[in-house]
Design a protein around this nucleic acid. Structure first.
Length: 405
RNA sequence: GGAGGGGUGGCAGAGUGGCCGAAUGCACCGGUCUUGAAAACCGGCGAUAUGCAAGUAUCCGUGGGUUCAAAUCCCACCCCCUCCGCCA
């Protein structure tokens, strides 16, 4: 959520930022509503002040057993008017919130301007893609041949885009989860969390999945949602809290299964493990002071990269252009791992600084020591890493001519 | 699922219709004292909106309602605790 005050004081800047993302949003409506809201607030404020003082007088008169009937009647009228105006105000507030919740974050000034993934900018590479003296197979073919991936039965017992991991495949997946969590908690200073996999609508709104992206989520019959990423429960741990300055920065790491409807991705990555309705991920989340967030983004990204370095998998890091960034992000680095069978780099981690966008939605604040003031925190998140895709990378990069890994 | 109890400021905990945004204690911050610290004493100490500011308004789990006036009364919902049932 953007700061309404910023929209009010500098609508041109906001428009410009949104335009860079390819987001044409009409700010006139919200500015009009805001204007109306403030006028109304002034009016009701005055009326309520009157009601408060006169009500007090009535109380005194009654105590002295004097007649207060006239004042009561007058205030009855005032109260009716207040009720009316309050109802109007509430409607306007809801209108403003509704619009605000659907506006994406503004890109950071360092983000390259562009339309889509073609305009993302590579900033570094690590490792050399291996030269094969045979044609490398896809992870799907390898997995089926070794009987460690079972797509058919995944579809049978659930649906398309669900996969069964078997034997050494299941073991490898589990080992990767442990490896990643151990690395981040033992060496990078993150606190391990095991959160619920189902969360409520407020939580989904806090990180930006709702209301705009409801179609991407699985929802249960009692109004809980399956988490699409651990970013959601981790960031919302401190929803509606005021943190102490000393508590910051907070580093959290969690494994969760992730659930996504993948509506609208028909025909994309249909074969294999790349795009699933359910996949495993170890997620990193940071909650920090605003002045630190861009440094924290760099280290967060490096923490994620370290997983690939230790697995000796070649990768590159790209900075997403304005048009390719997610809804809540101000700046995002994608880490892309080399996949020989696809002969290209594929996303395996996405590390974002959301600045105060989520903090404002979720009301995550801290009391700064120097200024004794309450401020919004900055929130960051990054995959560290997507486990299924890591397994894919291992199978493809470490395959041998005889079909073994 | 059934029965009962309860949700008040960072925490504990008063407050059952009217100077209550809320006593008191702890914690915290500043000061006095001290070589320093502790203790003691003095003072300060919630958030949001709006406004240049003074101020004003709002907030006592959430949402409605009654009333001139609601933390306090009524209704619905949510959450927590205890007991019973069921259960990995």
């Amino acid at each position: 959520m953007l700061d309404l005050k910023l929209i009010r004081s500098n609508p041109e800047k906001v428009k410009e930022g949104l335009k860079k993302r390819g987001s044409e949003i009409d700010l006139d409506t919200i500015l009009l509503l805001d204007q109306k809201r403030r006028e109304l607030l002034l009016e009701t404020g005055t009326l309520k002040e009157k009601r408060n003082t006169v009500s007090e007088e009535i109380g005194k008169l009654k105590k002295e057993k004097k007649d207060a009937q006239e004042k009561i009647l007058a205030m009855k009228e005032v109260s009716t008017k207040i009720k009316e105006l309050d109802a109007q105000g509430k409607e306007i507030d809801e209108g403003i919130t509704k619009i605000l919740l659907e506006i994406p974050n503004l890109p950071h000034e360092s983000v390259p301007i562009g339309e889509n993934e073609k305009d993302n900018v590579e900033i570094r590479r690590w490792g050399e893609p291996r030269k094969f003296n045979f044609t490398p197979l896809t992870h799907g073919d390898i997995g089926e041949a070794l009987d460690i991936l079972d797509f058919e039965r995944g579809a049978k017992i659930a649906a398309a885009r669900f996969t069964v991991l078997k034997g050494m495949g299941a073991k490898l997946e589990r080992a990767l989860i442990n490896f990643m969590l151990d690395l981040h908690t033992n060496e990078h200073g993150y606190k391990e969390i095991f959160p619920p996999f189902l969360v409520n609508a407020e939580t989904m709104t806090g990180t930006g999945q709702l209301p705009k992206f409801e179609d991407d989520l699985f929802k249960t019959s009692n109004d809980l949602y399956l988490v699409p990423t651990a970013e959601v429960p981790l960031t919302n741990l401190h929803r509606q809290e005021i943190l102490n300055d000393d508590d910051l920065p907070l580093y959290y790491a969690a494994y969760t299964a992730c659930f996504r409807r993948e509506a609208g991705s028909y025909g994309k990555d249909v074969r294999g493990l790349i795009r699933q309705h359910q996949f495993n991920k170890v997620e990193l989340v940071k909650i920090c002071r605003p002045e630190d967030s861009y440094n924290e983004l760099e280290t967060l990204t490096q923490n994620a990269e370290e997983v690939l370095k230790r697995l000796e998998l070649p990768f590159r890091v790209v900075v997403l252009c304005t048009g390719d960034m997610g809804f809540s992000a101000a700046k995002t680095y994608d880490i892309e791992v080399w996949l020989p069978a696809q002969d290209r780099y594929r996303e395996i981690s996405s590390c974002s600084n959301c600045e105060d966008f989520q903090a404002r939605r979720a009301m995550i604040r801290y009391r700064s020591k120097e200024k004794e003031k309450v401020n919004l925190v900055h929130t960051l998140n990054g995959s560290g890493l997507a486990v299924g895709r890591t397994l894919v990378a291992i199978l493809e990069n470490y395959q041998q001519k005889d079909g073994s890994i």
